[in-house]
């Protein structure tokens, strides 16, 4: 057996020639049907890898194109999704505002915050409601959470609102359970407090509402809740620190309560007295 391999190795050209010629003659000797079958089998086995590679190249090319298109679509949808999320959040906010407006006994004018004071200590905002909307100076401004401030300046379509964060803004408030009245003040908008007589009954988490005695805010509007009770410099008083319900950094929509200040009825008499002097 070994001598056959040795012979083939020694005469490899002749052996190859013999092999290929025999193969060719064998193919030639087949009938036409057999030749066609053999041809198809050979075509499939010899060229299938190339055809597969070619088709794969085409597919990969398509995948790349599709990937590029999908990336574009993903980017578009991400933007669209962000827009829809924003609309959804706005919708939730507006729903709250709407229910607040329905439940409120006062006539309200909804407005958007269009300008914020560009400082870390925001003391005022500008809203897109003015004289044409029936807004007057000193009208109270609220959100569904609580009081925000008062209108200090009115233009045709805009109004400047002084926030209760402003140290010069003082609001008459009341401890809801005990009905003890005090003035809501702030030192630079960081902390809000009321000075109450030492004997007044107050506890942490008590709700603070407007008293209606200041002439601007009607009584019963939410202002905040008691955060901490501390001693005052004057031993006859104690200092009640308040946490307001409104987050002033996140105000986007507000309501102006279309309620003129209580002293406006006396404004003409006051003006005539000044003229007489």
């Amino acid at each position: 057996m070994l001598w056959i391999f040795q012979f083939i190795y020694r005469h490899h050209t002749l052996s190859s020639l013999f092999l290929t010629v025999i193969l060719s003659l064998w193919m030639l000797s087949r009938s036409l049907d057999q030749q066609q079958r053999l041809s198809r089998t050979l075509m499939f086995s010899l060229f299938y890898p190339f055809q597969y590679a070619t088709s794969m190249t085409g597919r990969i090319k398509n995948v790349f194109a599709e990937n590029k298109k999908l990336r574009h679509q993903v980017a578009e949808l991400a933007v669209r999704n962000a827009e829809l999320e924003e609309y959804s959040a706005e919708n939730a906010r507006l729903n709250k505002l709407l229910s607040f407006k329905k439940d409120s006994p006062y006539s309200l004018k909804a407005a958007h915050v269009v300008i914020r004071e560009p400082s870390y200590q925001m003391r005022s905002i500008v809203i897109d409601a003015g004289k044409e909307d029936g807004v007057l100076q000193f009208m109270p401004v609220v959100t569904q959470d609580g009081i925000v401030g008062k209108v200090t300046q009115v233009l045709r379509n805009l109004s400047l609102v002084q926030l209760i964060k402003d140290p010069s803004c003082r609001t008459s408030v009341m401890i809801k359970p005990s009905r003890a009245v005090g003035i809501l003040e702030t030192d630079e908008g960081d902390r809000y407090y009321i000075r109450l007589r030492s004997h007044e009954d107050v506890a942490e988490n008590d709700t603070i509402i407007t008293s209606g005695l200041g002439g601007i805010f009607p009584p019963g509007l939410n202002a905040g809740k008691v955060d901490l009770i501390a001693k005052d410099k004057n031993p006859l008083f104690k200092r009640v620190y308040i946490k307001p319900f409104v987050n002033f950094d996140r105000i986007e929509e507000v309501f102006v309560i279309l309620l003129p200040p209580q002293w406006s009825a006396f404004q003409s008499e006051k003006d005539s007295l000044i003229t007489e002097e």
Binding site: L17, L23, S24, L25, M27, L28, Q35, M43, L46
Partner: peptide, 19 residues
């Protein structure tokens, strides 16, 4: 063989001649 497979001749004819 490639020519035989791709052209409508008798299978093995070109292969034998070219070999």
């Amino acid at each position: 063989l490639s020519q035989d497979l791709y052209s409508p001749s008798i299978l093995g004819q070109q292969a034998l001649a070219k070999t």
